[in-house]
Design a protein around this nucleic acid. Sequence first.
DNA 1: CATGAATGAGAGTTCATTCAT
DNA 2: GATGAATGAACTCTCATTCAT
Lengths: 194, 194, 194, 194
Amino acid sequence: MSDKSVQKKKYILETARGVFAEKGYKSVTMKDIVDACDISRGGLYLYFSSTREIFLEVLKMEQEEADDVFEKSIAKEAGPADILALFLKEQKRELVSKKPGLNKASYEFFMDEQNYGKDNFLKKQFDSAVVVIQKLIEAGVENGEFYCEDARRAASNIMYVLEGLKIASLTRGITEAAVDREIMYVMRGLVAEE
Amino acid sequence: MSDKSVQKKKYILETARGVFAEKGYKSVTMKDIVDACDISRGGLYLYFSSTREIFLEVLKMEQEEADDVFEKSIAKEAGPADILALFLKEQKRELVSKKPGLNKASYEFFMDEQNYGKDNFLKKQFDSAVVVIQKLIEAGVENGEFYCEDARRAASNIMYVLEGLKIASLTRGITEAAVDREIMYVMRGLVAEE
Amino acid sequence: MSDKSVQKKKYILETARGVFAEKGYKSVTMKDIVDACDISRGGLYLYFSSTREIFLEVLKMEQEEADDVFEKSIAKEAGPADILALFLKEQKRELVSKKPGLNKASYEFFMDEQNYGKDNFLKKQFDSAVVVIQKLIEAGVENGEFYCEDARRAASNIMYVLEGLKIASLTRGITEAAVDREIMYVMRGLVAEE
Amino acid sequence: MSDKSVQKKKYILETARGVFAEKGYKSVTMKDIVDACDISRGGLYLYFSSTREIFLEVLKMEQEEADDVFEKSIAKEAGPADILALFLKEQKRELVSKKPGLNKASYEFFMDEQNYGKDNFLKKQFDSAVVVIQKLIEAGVENGEFYCEDARRAASNIMYVLEGLKIASLTRGITEAAVDREIMYVMRGLVAEE
DNA sequence: CATGAATGAGAGTTCATTCAT
DNA sequence: GATGAATGAACTCTCATTCAT
């Protein structure tokens, strides 16, 4: 594949990402993407042959970018409590934002796919977040910032609450205050039990 | 509306409920429902004019039945801890069950609708569950079964974890053991702090 | 299926027959038939879901009509030689006619299908024609009109020659005189060896 | 046209021949040939501008090769009866073979073309075969191997039977035994009437 | 009320053909 | 010469929705 092709493919994926972010997964048609990209019907088929294929590649792209972000976050030297706080703040920002990102589309997609394997994007995201949080908590316990008996459990609890907030946000809206309250509640378990 | 009409409408809604449970919301066509009900295309339009309208009424029906169930649960005189345990057991059963009920369809529906008002079925379900759990916890605190400083927060935390488990179950599958672990974790907060 | 439906189906098949006769099989699209029948795109799909399905039913129709014709031919009491002559004359008429009937479409269809079973229309037509001709020859031998040692062989030889003439006619044209010569040649074998 | 060009053109035609042999004429697209030749879309158009043009040149190529073969056959000095037997054997081999050569494609092509002129490939093949067979028969009559009153008629009869067998083979399949029986029958006319 | 035939808009997909590089 | 990306026309098929009976 030529250099130009690669560029165009990337352009399509980025444009398509916007379409999925706006319309979710199931409502998006090849025509929607063709229109958004301002290319011809046949042109799109040169690169992708279904919305499913496009969405999968959008997710792959997303994954790679997410990995980059992770590394940057960790690169900045800061205490584990600070990093966790930063992570939660970022999550909150996304929850409250009007631009829903790919959450809606991803949920629609994976509810349809019934793909419960290791290549499930949501599973991967979730599991790796749990691991990172667990490590942060353990580090926090070590330096006395946190108190926690089972870091693994605490980490997954945090993630499930976030997941609950996410779907709540998408299906019925959620106020910033409510998000704050829930986050504060789960954090209290870590810091308050002195 | 004649008595026969009411019966037929109810029949359609019950049949449609099964269709939504199986296929979700967005994939369901009027044709699907016509086929499932074994009525004529025109016939269906006499009662409902879109899948959206049907789904809304299915939800209303669901709501009414859910209320019934609630009342029964509470009617049985038992300790608050027992009732809460029963509630969580029921939630777990649904999470693990292969038949996903209307969860998938509801999520699809409300992600599309962007209806964040008080008539949002999911919001109502969630909020009333929070209230009930809160009351159970308060009762438990009173009779010494539970320890909890902020019953309201604890209740909503439980519900968000359950919501997180629910969407996780739908999008990536979840094991019974994982559900147990999460439920145990949230309950530990209530009982373990002697 | 209602009476009206049956009528419409028959109407479509008859119209489609004309389309196949004119354009062959492979070039015919659903749109061609829709246009010819002056119905809507979706309307056609109520009755048939592919050109293949339509063509198969056209052939079935053709078969039934052909059976009728056969019976009539035999009903007329005449000597076997006369009946055979009539049959050959009819074949010749079709060979020379500008309107090629379904021959072209049938050949295209069955070259594609690779259906060599007993439900192959061309096979059925051929085999039953061979049987009829064989009986005519045997009857002719009995009453002295024909001389023939192996009626079966003679009959199939006649049919293969006719088949050769048919495909020749469709692919390169054939003159009436040429047809006459060939028919005369095969008949000479039956009558000349006194 | 450069030498290289000629080579490439020949390469394309030979590859295309295989495609036509496999898929017939009408189903073959420019893309099929591009893929089979492993050249670029634009590249093919430098040499040919349609499948029709390609097929015509494939036939021309075929014709030239066929002429070569004929000459070789006749070059071998043998009795006319032997040569004819050899010819029929070769025909039978092709009829029974799973690889149908260009027969299917040719029939499709000429049924569509309605080209009844002298440049019709099938006509040329047929007519020249008739001439050759006629000469063989005449030679056979001369040396006493055959008995025949009208060699011309006998020759064209043989060819029509072969044509009938060919289309029968393509559209409904034919057993080797059936081919043998038919060939034997037409030959009996030449040798049996001592 | 109830039926189901009919319509037409719109999504998916494939291909011949062109054209800048 | 050669490439292959790009276009747009054409075809298949499905549905929501209407309407005569």
